[in-house]
C-alpha cells in the first residue's frame, strides 16, 4: 500500500492507496498536483534514508511526504 503523508496541524494526514488500482492511482496523482500547485514540497527517501525532492508524481513511490512552502522566520 503506497502512502502520501501531508504535514498539517494534527501532525500529518495520511492517504493510503493501492498503486495497482488505476482509479486510486489517478486520485493520488491529482492530490500530488493539487498539493504542489498550492506550494507544498514533495519528497521521497530511499532505503538508506537519503531524501530527494520530486517534482512530478511517481507512481512507484511507496511513500511521499509533503510539507508546506517555506517562509522566513
Amino acid at each position: 500500500m503506497a502512502t502520501q503523508i501531508v504535514m498539517d496541524h494534527t501532525g500529518d494526514t495520511r492517504h493510503y492507496f493501492d498503486a495497482k488500482d488505476a482509479q486510486a492511482l489517478a486520485k493520488a496523482e491529482e492530490r500530488f498536483k493539487e498539493l504542489t500547485r498550492d506550494g507544498f514540497t514533495a519528497a521521497v527517501r530511499n532505503a538508506a534514508g537519503d531524501v530527494s525532492r520530486v517534482r512530478s508524481f511517481d507512481p512507484t513511490a511507496e511513500e511521499t511526504l509533503f510539507f508546506p512552502r517555506l517562509v522566513g522566520g
Binding site: M7, D8, D12, S52, R53, L65, F67, R69, L70, G72
Partner: peptide, 25 residues
C-alpha cells in the same frame, strides 16, 4: 538561519521540513 514551513506545525514536522530543504534545496 530562521526558516519554517508555513502554517501551524509541530516541532518534529518543522525540523523535518528544515532537514529536507537543506539536503535537497
Amino acid at each position: 538561519w530562521c526558516f519554517v514551513p508555513d502554517g501551524y506545525l509541530a516541532a518534529g514536522d518543522i525540523m523535518l521540513a528544515q532537514k529536507i530543504s537543506l539536503e535537497t534545496n
